[in-house]
């Protein structure tokens, strides 16, 4: 597990049913590309977040595959719509098998 990995998400607290809401996500992660070398000239092994998903009550909003060309501290912004109050689940998958999760509730009026 990479050090100090911390997810951040921004989801509106409330929305109308079916309304488009903007979701912004950011996670602290080096996204080590595998292309770099250390000071001794040895390749630094690749370690990236290779997949990010956002689900709402078990239904998929976005399922993204990430490659080493995504910047350090990966940022993903997208739009969701939800039929009723519930909870978003955000999951980041690390090359080393670590999984980072966070959730955010939304009230639909």
């Amino acid at each position: 597990m990479a050090d100090n990995v911390k997810p951040r998400v921004r989801v509106p607290k409330s929305a109308k049913a079916g309304e488009a809401i903007v979701i912004k996500t950011l996670i602290s992660h080096p996204m080590e590309s595998g292309q770099r070398k250390d000071k001794q000239g040895n390749p630094i092994p690749r370690q990236i977040i290779n997949r990010f998903t956002c689900e709402f009550e078990g239904e998929m909003v976005l399922d993204a595959t990430l490659e080493p060309a995504v910047s350090t501290n990966p940022y993903v912004e997208f739009e969701a719509k939800v039929p009723a109050s519930g909870t978003f689940k955000f999951t980041w998958y690390d090359d080393d098998g670590s999984v980072y999760e966070t959730t955010e509730a939304i009230t639909v009026s």
Partner: peptide, 12 residues
């Protein structure tokens, strides 16, 4: 502040 990646470090 959400777009500013420095805030990750401020939170830490």
């Amino acid at each position: 502040d959400f777009e500013n990646p420095a805030m990750l470090y401020v939170e830490a």
